[in-house]
């Protein structure tokens, strides 16, 4: 078993992880942890539930690695798992809240503001979290992909398996909704 996998190629990491090498899978998590956090927390908010979904993403990834054929990038594969699990969670919560509460979408989004080095950074994070909280979940994924992950509209459409026109129209509607939300904040 290798001591460190920092410089190792992704395919080798996948092979080693399938063979049961904990260190190799740990390195995959290290490389993609923040990316998954941006998707999950961007859509669900910064809460313990998001942590649970994040864990589920990597557990599912570990078990599905033998099926990964390397045709797509590993990052795309992980993102798809993260998006699917997060959307499932949103649907589950929607069902739950529609049964027990009359409140809106914002109830499905929770966040905790962690310790920041400065007040300004804390405010920035709080503002983004509040804005995402108020945003329609349908638009939240599009905004998270573009604003937090830095993907272009075309890349977002490919990852989400949506037509480019749909992404463009949702992006424009999300922007309108965000304008209204940010006015109130």
């Amino acid at each position: 078993m290798k001591e460190s996998y920092r410089q190792t190629d992704e395919n080798e990491l996948v092979r080693a992880s399938i063979a049961g090498d904990k260190l190799a899978f740990g390195e995959i998590m290290e490389r993609y942890r923040k990316m998954v956090a941006r998707i999950v927390k961007g859509m669900l908010g910064d809460s313990v539930y998001a942590e649970d979904i994040g864990q589920e993403v990597f557990i599912k990834l570990y078990h599905s690695l033998p099926e990964f054929r390397g045709e797509a990038k590993l990052s795309t594969y992980i993102q798809k798992i993260a998006i699917n699990l997060t959307l499932n969670e949103i649907k589950r919560r929607k069902r739950f809240f529609s049964m027990f509460s009359q409140k809106g979408n914002s109830e499905m989004y929770e966040y905790e503001i962690a310790d920041f080095e400065s007040e300004e950074k804390r405010d920035a994070s709080e503002l983004v979290n509040k804005a995402l909280k108020e945003l329609d979940p349908k638009f939240r994924i599009i905004v998270a992909m573009r604003m937090l992950q830095g993907y272009s509209t075309k890349e977002t459409a490919e990852i989400l398996d949506l037509p480019l026109g749909t992404v463009l129209s949702r992006l424009s509607r999300a922007q309108e909704q965000l304008k209204e939300i940010l006015k109130k904040l």
Binding site: A37, R38, K121, R122
Partner: peptide
């Protein structure tokens, strides 16, 4: 300062 990450000990 808009950072998203999981808590310590996540991995």
């Amino acid at each position: 300062g808009v950072l998203f990450d999981f808590s310590k000990g996540f991995s």
